[in-house]
Structure formats: structure tokens, C-alpha cells
Computed example of a mutant assay.
Amino acid sequence: MKRNIVIATLTAAALVTGGTVAAFAAGDDEATATRRQANTSAQVTAAEAIAAALKHTPGKALSADLDDDGADVWEVTVVKGDGSGYEVRIAPDTGKVLGTQRDTEDDHDADDRAELAAVKGAHTDAREAALAAAAKGTVTEVGLDDDNGTVAWSADTVKDGRQGEWKVAPDSGKVTQDRDDDA
């Protein structure tokens, strides 16, 4: 998922291991790409991780990320009604809550306020966006993305060893391919 970084050129590299071919965008080192691919075997889906996080910490889910730093956990960001943010860690094999940490680094800038407003007015939440994107592959990350003032859900998927990036409209749940990285 883009994190406010404009990628001028994307290249694909194929990693052949045991007859499995996996394509990864430039910028992922081999170890990170291999972990991301391995994490797609998680038994708990993004939608299930979000549901577990919200059951534990009620609020609005803003994102879910299948952590690829070797910790092998879902990290779900939840914002409560008072604006306080929390990271809820979910086991990818059982769906159990492993811990919750308050996000004290949230700066609530204009982009953050726009994203929160978009979530409040949306017909589609993060769980529904993950469910919609799951038709395109195994969802490894879902969250809000603000491109040129337009807020939409963004989802990363893996299917048949290939990564995909998708936009999910907050009002309709319509899934389209994310072509913003082509610029």
C-alpha cells in the first residue's frame, strides 16, 4: 500500500522456490517479500481479524495489516468515539487478541481528519472493504488512502504468487484496480 510515497517506476522480480513463482514490486527486499508471501497462509482473514479487534476494542477500524516484520500478527488500528487510537494485535492462526496498545503518536493532521470523516460517512467499513477485496485474492492489508483529496479503502492482495492493489469505494463497496502507482 502506498504510504505517501510516489513510486516513479515499478519493476517486478520473480522468485522461484520449490516450483512456486512469486512476483514482488521493487522496494521489497527478498526477506520481506518471502515473509509477506508466507503470511498469506494465515488462517484468520483480514475481515475476521478486524471483527476480533472491534469485539475487544469497540470503535471504527481504520486499517488491518498482516505484519511482515517476522512477528506474524494482524495489526488492526481502531479509533474510539473520543478520537483515541489503538493498535490491536491479533493472532493470525487463532484470531485471539494478543495485546492492545494506545497510539500516542497520532498527530490528527488534516489528512487524518479527512479520513476519519470519510469513515463516519461511509457505507463500507474496513471489514466490508476487506471482504470485497478478498474476491481478488488473500487480503494482506486494508486501510484508508487519500489520493488527491479522494478518500477510498485501499487493499493489498496476494493470489497465485502475485500481489495486487485495489481501491474499494467507501460509498458503494465497488472494487477497482489501483493504478495510482503507475505515475
Rank of each mutant, 00 (worst) to 15 (best):
D147P: 00
D147Q: 12
D147I: 15
N148G: 10
N148W: 08
N148L: 10
G149R: 09
G149F: 13
G149K: 06
T150R: 15
T150L: 15
T150Q: 14
A152I: 07
A152C: 10
A152W: 09
W153H: 05
S154V: 12
S154R: 12
S154K: 09
S154Q: 15
S154L: 14
S154Y: 08
S154P: 06
A155L: 13
A155D: 05
A155T: 06
D156E: 15
D156V: 14
D156M: 11
D156A: 13
V158W: 09
V158M: 09
V158K: 00
V158I: 15
V158T: 05
V158P: 01
K159Q: 13
K159W: 07
K159C: 06
D160H: 11
D160F: 01
G161Y: 09
G161E: 11
G161I: 13
R162Q: 11
R162E: 10
R162D: 10
Q163C: 05
Q163V: 12
Q163M: 14
Q163P: 06
G164Q: 08
G164S: 08
E165S: 11
E165R: 12
E165G: 05
W166C: 05
W166N: 02
W166K: 04
W166T: 04
W166H: 07
W166V: 02
K167C: 01
K167E: 04
V168F: 03
V168M: 02
V168G: 01
V168Y: 01
V168L: 03
V168N: 00
V168A: 03
A169T: 11
A169V: 10
A169Q: 08
A169W: 06
P170V: 14
P170Q: 09
D171E: 15
D171K: 14
D171S: 14
D171V: 10
S172C: 05
S172D: 07
S172L: 06
S172E: 09
G173S: 04
G173Q: 03
K174Y: 03
K174N: 07
K174C: 00
V175S: 05
V175Y: 02
T176V: 08
T176L: 01
Q177G: 04
Q177M: 05
Q177P: 02
Q177H: 03
Q177C: 00
D178S: 03
R179H: 06
R179E: 08
R179I: 01
D180I: 00
D180C: 01
D181V: 01
D181L: 03
